[in-house]
Each structure stands twice: as C-alpha cells, then as structure tokens.
Design a protein around this nucleic acid. Sequence first.
RNA 1: GCCCGGGUGGCGAAACUGGUAGACGCAAGGGACUUAAAAUCCCUAGGCCGCAAGGCCGUGCAGGUUCAAGUCCUGCCCCGGGCACCA
Length: 851
Amino acid sequence: MQETYDPAAVERDAQKYWGAHASFRSVEDPKKRKFYCLSMFPYPSGKLHMGHVRNYTIGDVLTRYYRMRGYNVLQPMGWDAFGLPAENAAMANKVPPAKWTRDNIAYMKKQLQGLGFALDWQRELATCDASYYKWNQWLFTRLFKKGLAYKKTGVVNWDPVDQTVLANEQVIEGRGWRTGAVVEKREIPMYFFRITAYAEDLLKALDDLPGWPEQVKLMQKNWIGKSEGVRIGFEYFLENKKQTLWVFTTRADTLMGATFMAVAAEHPIAAFASQKNPELKAFVEECKKGAVMEADLAQIEKQGMPTGIFATHPLTGEKLPVWVGNYVLMGYGEGAVMGVPAHDERDYAFALKYKLSIKPVIRHPAGDRVDPPWRSEYAEYGVCINSGPYNGLSFGEAVNAIARDLKQKDLGEKQIQWRLRDWGISRQRYWGCPVPIIHCPSCGDVPVPDDQLPVRLPEHLVPDGTGNPLNKLPAFYETTCPSCGEPAKRETDTMDTFVDSSWYFARFTCPDQDRQMVDERAMYWMAVDQYIGGIEHAILHLLYSRFFTRAMRDEGLLPGLAEPFTNLLTQGMVLAESYYTDASGRREWVNPADVSIEKDSKGKILSAKRNSDGAPVVYDGIGTMSKSKNNGVDPQALIDQYGADTARFYTMFASPPTNTLEWSDESVEGSYRFLKKVWDFAYRFSRAKCDAAADRKIRYQIHLELKKANDDVERQKFNTVASACMKILNAIDQLPEWNATSKEGLSILLRLLSPIAPHVTHALWRELGFGEDVLRAPWPEPDAAALEQDEVELVVQVNGKLRGSIKVPKAADKEAIQRLALSNDNVQKFVAGQAIKKFVLVPGRLINLVV
RNA sequence: GCCCGGGUGGCGAAACUGGUAGACGCAAGGGACUUAAAAUCCCUAGGCCGCAAGGCCGUGCAGGUUCAAGUCCUGCCCCGGGCACCA
C-alpha cells in the first residue's frame, strides 16, 4: 500500500468503486427492513455552503450506518429549483432564471458527488421540471374541486413606484429594496389552501410523533394556536341600521370590565366612519402604510383614534366607544377586540394613553386595585368583582355563566379559535409553478383539465423588477375556456415554492412515474424514517408537509399515511467570524479567508489584517454566514486542500448536529491530522506481524469506547463518535508491540469511522485485507467479556467534596467499602474523629460521607 | 412585541437517568529530531495559593431544593432561530 495518505487519489478510487458497483441504488424489496433517510433538498443558489456540507454529512453518516446494520436504505437528492434568487440573478445578469438555475444545479451536483455522499442519483428531480410541477397543478385542481383550494383577497407588500408586489425580504425598514419607496399594504385576490380544515388533526397528531424534538412540536402547537373562548356581539347603529360587531375573547370573565372597542384599520366600521371624518381617514391611511410583517406590526407604537360610533355592551347596555387601533390585526379572529384595560396589558397602555376608563373586575393576588404602572398580576385569573350577578365566580364559572347569558340574547356563544391561518399560495412572480386556473368571463374560475396539464412555464423570459413578465406575454395568458370554449385569460400567478417542497419526499419514491403523482412504491418507502434539516424550518415547511401528506392521503394517493417524517433531526446553523475595514469611513466586509490573525499566548486576538494588502481589519464577532457580512466560507477550498473525508470529519467532530457550528480553519487541520494518523498507523500495521496475544487493558478501553460510541450513534451525537475513533487509535497506538489487539482495534476503528470518513476507510479496509467492501461489513459490537473487571474505582467524598478515591473488589459489600474509604489518609483528615451521620453509596461510582 | 432554543477553559466541546466538571481535539508554551524549515514525536496546561502533599474558588447573574446541582425549581441578563411572500 501507499506509504502516505493521498486523499485525492483515495477518494477518486472509492467513488469509482461505488459507481461501478451501483452501491447506492435503491430497489424496493419487501423482504428487507427499509430505511428512508432524507436531508432537506437544497436551493440551487450557485455553490454548496457549509450548512449543506453539514446537513448532507449527517444524513450520509446515518445511511451508511443503517446499510451496515442491514437495512434497505434510500437516500435521494433533488433541487428546490423555483424561487426569488433566480429572478434577482436574472435581473443582474440578464440571463433567464432557467439557465442560471440549471447551471447551478450542474455545478452543485458535481460538488455533492465529490463529497462521496451515498445518494441514489437515478432518483434526482428538480421542482422546475414540468414532469414534477405538473403534479402540483394536478393536486391543486383536485383540492380546488373539493373546496380545499379557494380564492379570496389577501394582503401584500406593494411598491408604488415599481408597481409590483414585494416579498417580505425585499422590504428594508418599510421601504422597497430597489426604489426606496415607502411600502403599502394592498389587498389582491389570491388562492389559498384550507390548511385550517386540518388544524385539529395537525395539532392532535403532534402527540404521536415521538421521533420529533419537543421544541419543534411545541413551536408547531403554539403556531396552530388552539384557544377556547367566547364570541361576543356588540350591537351598534350604522345609518340607523342595527349591526353587530363581533369579537373573540379568551377572557369572557372580564367582559364586565370592557370600557371600549378597538377595530383594525381595514375593518368595515373604520372605512364607514372615515367617510365623514377626514382626520380619521388620514389615520386609517397611515395604518395601511408599511409592510405586512407581523414582527414589525407587533413592535410599532400602539395608536388609535375614535370613530365616533358607540357599541352596546351586551350585558350592561352601556355605550362603549369604538376606536380604530393600529395594533388590531384584521387577519386574526374578527378584526376587532373588546378593550378591558384593567386586565390586559395592551389595553391598559392604550387606555392610559387616551384617558379611557379602567374598571377592575377580577380580584388579583395583589388586591382589587389596578394602579399604574402595569403589573403582570393584573392579568391573572381570579374571582369576579364589580361584576353584578357574576361576583364571586371563578374564571371557569364566570365564562360559563356569561356565555350562557349571551347565548340567551343571541349575542354570543363559546367558540374555538385558531391562530393558524389558511395558506396563501399565489405569488405575483415568474419563476414558479403556474397556478392552473383559467378565468372565463362567463364560467368564472375554471381549473385546467387533466389533459391540458402541465401548464408549462415559458423558460426564456428575463424579469425586469416591474412585476411578473408573464403578464406581458399574450402567448401565455391568452387562451380559451375549457368549459365553454370562449376566449379566456390564463392565471399568471405562480405558486409559493413551499408547495413544491411539501411533497417532494413522496415523489422521490417514484420520480419516473408519468401517469400519476405517486404510485405504490411510495407506500413501500414512506414515511421518511429520518428527516434532517435546519431548525429554521421548524414551523412552515414541516407544517405544510404534514398538511400535504394528509391532503394526498385523502385524495387516495398515500392510503393511511398522515405523518411524512417519523424522526426529525434539526441541525444548528453554521456560523463564522466576520471582519471589516473602515479606512474609507465606511465598513467594508472582508472575507475571513482573506484575513490573518495574530494572537497572544492565551489565544486572544491581538491584531488582524487583510492578506491582500496588509490593511488592518476589525473583528466583529461571530454570526450566521451571510452575503451582507461577506463571511461565507466556501467548502470547496477546504475539499480541494484536504479532501472530502476531512471536510466530513470536521463537520461531524466540531459539535453535535443540533448545535450551532462555529467555523474554524485550525480545527480542520486537526481533523486532517487524525485521518493521516489513521493512514500511518495502518501502513505500519500492514508491514508488521500481529502474532502476540491480546492486551487485556487496551481491549477493555477499546470495547468501552465502542459501547459508548454505539450509544452515541443511536443518539445521533456524531461528535463523540468521532472522538471515540480518536481514543481507539490512541489506545492501540500505545501498545508496546503489535498483537491481536492491534488488529482487532483497527478493524473496529475502520468500521466505526467509515460512515464519517468513507473514502479512507474504504481504501484501508481493502488494503489491509479485512474484506471487499467496508460498507458491507457488519457493524462492530462490544464484547461483553472484554468489559468484565474484577476491581472498580470509587470516588470518596466527604460532605459532597472530593477527597480521594479507592479501588474495591467488584463484589465488596457496603461495610467493607466504608472501611476501605475511611482507611484513605486524605479522607481521614476530613473525617477526623467526627461522627458519620450518613453514608451514601452510588454503586460503581462514588461514596459520600456526611459528617 | 410574541413563540422556541442556547450560555461550561484562550477556542470547539465532553459529562447518557442529579453522582469525579473540562474526555477528545484546536490554539498556546516548553522540549526532541533537523544545517534550517515543514512534517512527526514527547511534556505542560481552568483560576488563585503552595517546593510539594494538598487547599480554596469555578459551568451567564442572583437565590432555592438536595448527602450531592452544569444537570431540578424561581427571578433576571445576554445571544441565536421563527413570526405566515427568503428558502
């Protein structure tokens, strides 16, 4: 064998072997246990970033492990190929998004292959291929016919200068990214998926997902947001016509404390009242300025203005002023709230600001009064006071009594409210899947019939930033009505790219199927046994996928399947340091790859400079890799310099998968050094004789590490598996002579390491004659006999402080152990004649003497 | 603002169910080999005190529960993710 480790040659040969043996092709085999392992498919942005390398290495480690465990494994790869960045690149480079996207796919595919991922490339798919998005369209028409897809108005960000809809990302501090114009909210017709029809099921089923992180389930639960409360009607008159203003509240027990009403700027009352009130009209207009993002809305200063309209309290008959409030959301509930300043923090601030009355109606832990400043106790549950017939009732009793009385008057009843809203899927953009609807003047919205699917997206257009270019292409939108044959207009909106990614996992099971969305192969492979992706997808993508799986099930496509992902691993983000120069008075971000750092003997950064010109740079701390801070680390440079195995080993070793990972060049060096050590050891082994008998002590260490490592693989803590590999090498390297333990240890090491660093272990396994293919070797198991020990070491504490350690025979009883512990000199010093009040023995671990 | 996480040496981290805090590695310092460098190997290493044996302190901050707390409880501070049109 070669004396020195040559990653490039080793990796080329291993990849050639896997290719020639079709090692990763997956075929359905009902006799074998299947393992479907899936990493979230990438957006083809140009080149892989470290997050991809990390994500796909985690998945690859798992698939290789399960292969060695004898499972029939599927690990596919594809491309989330529609989306906004392609349009931005198209505008910048005057190249159609299709070409830009497909070039990126070709390059990134090469990169993935170079990393040696065990992927079945025969199943590759891209969401921008008509053979894929045809089935988006097909399912849309099915849901449309069932009423699970429908049209209503939705609010969007509108750039008044470019006359175009902006994505939230394109709104910077309330202004359009290209024009700088103040963004406005605008209501336009859109298509929605009725995800709320599945709200109850999506919520309940979270309890049956033991393989999901609690954190993600909790986030989804809160997002769906089931709350039980009461719908209450407040009557008012509009031009002498009696109307009812409905609100929803979870605190009906505080109804007697309501002193005002607040409605959203978009509420019909606000529109009506502003007709005769120019000041109010201006306020309502002002509320409509700005973007639609909830994070922004929640942080603006609470403001309001009275409408001059009064609504009648349904129980007391009191007249309550109706205000317009910029903090009331039209999209949640009824777009109106009752104001109970005494027991709601927002209402309290609003009432103080506008001098509205505050009426305490609940006794809280600090008393009956609600003097300023606001205290959180004011919002706690308690018994009713100042509430007439409800005085003395507890929260539950009061809600029941008030709901009953309201029902008698036909002005309210108990209701369940969801925070979850229906999913608006229309995008006024070009590079996406066309919504398959034809607008006919006489027949209305007609879904495109099956035999006319797919509605193909023309691929030659280049957007210019002023709206969807499909609107300027009569050849696309001029058509005839499928139902009456008269001239009609094709819908030019495309679908949210989340639609594409909500079912690709099912399509991977049968990507060549051209007669249906999925076939029976889906029921062999689904559900995905292990799904891996960034924590940033904890809600939207994962919730939409759960919804789609149910919608497809109810369409008969995935019989009996509700949950797409049995086990979920959410990986942390990859972070990097950032640096800037401000010589010109303006920050110029310098890529960390172009920075040299000088550190003191403690490792603190003394100074940093740019390599290219020696200019001093300022360290700006660590954060997510981003374009704006120019701190992205290109994994390709790392792969070119050290090889794929080092890149893979480093990403696994540096931190556990769920943690954030901070990029460090130096640690990469250490990973390379370890692989080189493995090679060197193997080379020396290949020239030695290992006839000597096994070493008991080292065998114990190896098998103990293996036992822990096997637990850690199951717990998906690959960083400690990597360190176990290092410990095993250190152990066998310590052996004074080559013996049976050298050989056994190396055989265990190579198999344990093979999922993480598959190329080098593939080469060594063959070179050293362990077998034909390490991937087909059995996974190593610890030998119980090697783990047997006659003596155990116990730590001795006195009053909980460590004072020494003793060796005791395995079978020693409590008294014997106590005697041995007290015979220790240092322990004696601290016990020193005092009475032993308590003797705590944790078998195999420690003793605590309490004196 | 709301929801969900996280905070352990100079750095990444380990400590599985409350039981030896800092395994493994990086960076650093010292040494060996070398004409020299690279590579490799050996040694040191949480802080403070001490020649040493050993002692005291130490897991974001302030309290609490316990024989025993990085781990459990209460309050606070800081950082990250998500908030429905980035993917």
